[in-house]
Nucleic acid binder design. Structure first.
Length: 761
DNA sequence: AGCACGCCGACT
DNA sequence: GTCGGCGTGCTC
């Protein structure tokens, strides 16, 4: 091997330590540095170091020691942490993720650590004011918050004992312990003056104590006790306990209908784990769902519970992270990024609502927390519980293939039967927003004093063209998305690319009569006010919830029964329970079903099933009505008939036939840039290069695309996507690795790789 | 990602 | 004659 002079030089000095580091830059390789003797003991795995990198200085993460290096070695400048930020086990996990997602390790490490730990750039120097902060355990970045606490000075005496309030305070201090001014004020009202006197007399002294920014500091939690379990819950708990007791990795699917008591199973499983000194990680799909879950956990457990999600302030997140790293926490609850929580001795990872797409990160390091949970669980010998009423098709298939243990919870804890839904054929009366059967049901429900929820999938005033005869929808020939009607131009336009056609008067496919179809929440609201002038109608969508607190205000009105009919988009489908809702209407399921994604049927099934689960009050099941232009679609018939397994069997057959997951693996390459034509040209070039690599490798890879993607999301940046599909994961992976190492993105164009993307739009 | 070097157009 | 455009190449 070509070992340069400097390599030999490095080897000739056996005393110099060489470390391997990763830098948080889009670079695949790791780098080697020499450690001066003065820093030798500190430059250990998991700590950050400051290194010269080209002409600049960067922070780097120490991955471990290296025996030798072929390169000209340079000394590190400094060690930035007093303690490692990650353990060797965690590094192993991050290394796996870097290889699997083809993402630079340094960037992954940076993404996994709390943002507050990074040195803030610029302004006033991030230097911690000297003297105020105690020696930090973890240096750099966010200020560590402190408070002043007072305690008795041992052995201090004075000639004249203080009187009055000062005497009371002194007695309090004599019981031992440290108290902050706030705590003392709570006990003795205003006591600043006597406290100052005690300090002046030398009877008490103060010091700075580190405090955590606690996102729940003002919330008081009532205790609660474990609830009795039904036989299915007990059976599920026993299977999980067995795996936990054996300390082995085992994946479970807690397959429970809405209201079947999944959370109680999580709680009792974790309760068994805590006495063993083990820890638990609970992932939830959305920030909005954390408070209610945290509430249940805090009421049940005395142990340290941390919350991690992007809704916390940088300081709060940094503090929560430090509490976890120091082992002060046994349970972590959080959104997808919580999969990187520095918990040790993990016993269980719960992924609640495992089918939710929000577990997928679609920017930068494109990981899926649900998938990483299984990997982390396996590495930690922990059990992984995937909970859902409507699991992913791939999860269901894995369960049937025996790779995941199914824990069925088919009954609701309140004994309420599963609702059935009625499908209303919309083809007969086009242009009608609310079909007669739904209007009649609304009238009845209003008369009975029940509340109704009308669900409509997003898009303010979107209108598209459908045919009354064949039910066909006008689509973009490039992107396969439905064309949106623009009244002003009287044309149908694609929102992805620039394609548009003049509005036709007959169906291009069968010459049948065409109707502008498509409803926005505002139109629905207007129509409802016509139909039910006396009803109290409210709307919940992105427009009405933009203001701070408006979200909860709308929900509050529903809870207080001040709303008779609530019209909502996506955001009402998940999360919050509406106990008073006895009628749910899905106004047009088409907007979900028509998304050109092989998962659209799965998504529709999940949406309907979730909404059905929300309907009903007490022991009364609610009524669900689904309006559709495609009433025979299997996603509708199975979900409306509550034939859960029927849907999955049908869907798995379709996936097998069409070659989609779980029978094929997917990846997407994204090329983005500010110049549209350049991006398109490059995407076509890249697709050709991929074809060439494929031919050389002899893999059976399918390339779908390139296709353009929405621009709005990307703030003026153009994005083209190349989809890759393969029956063989390894082949696909090798092809991506080969391609990426050979590909050089031209200036102004960025390449991103997404392995098994959740969105295939 | 930065930050260099490098080779071609309009300016004091 | 230089200042500056951003093309491409490297960072232990």
């Amino acid at each position: 091997m070509k070992c340069r002079l400097n390599g030999a030089e490095a080897m000739s000095n056996p005393l110099s330590i060489i470390i391997e580091v990763a830098v948080p830059l889009p670079l695949d390789s790791t780098f080697h540095y020499r450690v001066p003797a003065s820093l030798a003991r500190q430059a250990e795995l998991g700590r950050r170091v400051l290194v010269p990198f080209g002409k600049r200085k960067v922070t780097a993460y120490v991955l471990g020691h290296a025996a030798t290096s072929e390169h000209q070695l340079v000394d590190i400048l400094d060690v930035l942490d007093e303690q490692p930020l990650f353990t060797p086990q965690e590094l192993k996990f991050y290394r796996w993720a870097a290889a699997y997602y083809l993402h630079p390790l340094g960037e992954i490490l940076k993404a996994a650590l709390p943002a507050g730990i990074n040195q803030q750039s610029g302004r006033k120097g991030a230097a911690v004011t000297p003297g105020t902060a105690p020696a930090e355990l973890l240096t750099g970045g966010q200020r560590i918050k402190t408070e002043t606490v007072y305690r008795l000075t041992p052995g201090a005496t004075v000639e004249r004992s203080p009187r009055g309030k000062a005497a009371l305070l002194l007695d309090h201090f004599r019981t031992g312990g440290e108290y902050s001014a706030t705590e003392l004020r709570r006990l003795f009202a205003d006591c600043t003056a006597p406290l100052r006197r005690l300090a002046e007399l030398g009877l008490v002294h103060s010091r700075q104590r580190e405090v955590y920014r606690d996102p729940f500091k003002d919330v008081i939690f009532d205790r609660d006790a474990p609830l009795p379990l039904n036989p299915e819950q007990s059976a599920a708990l026993h299977q999980i306990s067995d795996a936990m007791a054996a300390g082995r990795f085992q994946p479970f699917l807690l397959f429970g209908v809405t209201g079947s008591g999944k959370t109680e199973v999580y709680l009792q499983a974790i309760a068994q784990l805590l006495p063993l000194g083990k820890t638990a990680l609970v992932l939830v799909p959305e920030i909005a769902l954390t408070p209610q879950l945290v509430n249940r956990f805090k009421r049940r457990f005395d142990c340290g519970i941390a919350v991690l999600h992007s809704g916390l302030s940088t300081g709060e997140r940094y503090d929560e992270w430090r509490r976890i790293r120091r082992g002060e926490v046994s349970i972590v609850i959080g959104a997808r990024s919580a999969i990187f929580a520095p918990l040790e001795r993990l016993g269980i990872i719960v992924v609640d609502e495992e089918h939710e797409g929000s577990y997928k990160q679609n920017e930068g390091f494109r990981y899926n927390a649900r998938d990483l949970a299984l990997v982390r669980g396996k590495m930690a010998h922990a059990c992984v519980v995937l909970g859902s009423a409507t699991p992913q098709v791939t999860t269901w298939h894995a369960a049937h293939a025996g790779q995941v243990t199914v824990l069925p919870l088919p009954h609701r804890v309140n004994g309420q039967p599963l609702p059935r839904a009625e499908i209303i054929d919309m083809r007969q009366r086009r242009g009608e927003l609310i079909m007669p059967p739904l209007a009649a049901a609304l009238t009845d429900n209003l008369a009975a004093g029940g509340q109704s929820l009308l669900f409509l999938n997003r898009r303010g005033f979107a209108t598209w063209l459908t045919c009354a005869e064949c039910g066909q929808v006008l689509r973009c020939p490039n992107c396969a998305v439905t064309l949106t009607y623009h009244q002003r131009r009287n044309r149908h336009c694609c929102h992805y690319c620039d394609y548009s056609i003049p509005a036709p008067s007959v169906c291009p496919a069968c010459n049948g009569p065409v109707t502008h179809f498509g409803i926005g929440t505002e139109q629905v609201e207007a129509r409802l006010r016509e139909l039910f002038p006396a009803a109290r109608i409210d709307r919940m969508d992105r427009d009405t919830t933009s203001g701070k607190g408006s979200h909860s205000r709308i929900l509050q009105r529903v809870a207080e029964r001040q709303t008779d009919i609530l019209i909502g988009t996506q955001m009402v489908a998940k999360g919050h329970d509406f106990p008073g809702i006895t009628l749910v209407g899905i106004l047009s399921v088409e907007s979900t079903l028509n998304i050109p994604d092989f998962r659209s049927a799965e998504r529709t099934f999940q949406l309907i099933t979730q909404l059905m689960g929300r309907a009903g009050r007490g022991s009364e099941p609610g009524k669900v009505m689904v309006q559709s232009l495609n009433p025979e679609h299997y996603a509708l018939t199975f979900s409306c008939g509550s034939e859960i397994d029927g849907f999955y069997r049908c869907e798995v057959d379709f996936r097998r036939e069409a070659g989609y997951p779980p029978f094929a693996f997917l990846a997407a390459l994204y090329l983005t840039g500010t110049a549209g034509e350049a991006v398109e040209r490059e995407a076509r070039l890249a697709a050709d290069k991929l074809l060439a690599v494929r031919r050389r490798a002899g893999t059976r890879l399918e390339i779908l695309g390139p296709a353009p993607a929405p621009l709005a999301k990307l703030r003026g940046r153009f994005r083209w996507q190349i989809l890759l599909k393969s029956r063989n994961r390894t082949e696909l992976h090798h092809l991506l690795v080969d391609f990426r190492s050979a590909y050089l993105a031209p200036a102004g164009i960025r390449l991103q790789i997404d392995v098994d993307p959740a969105d295939l739009m």
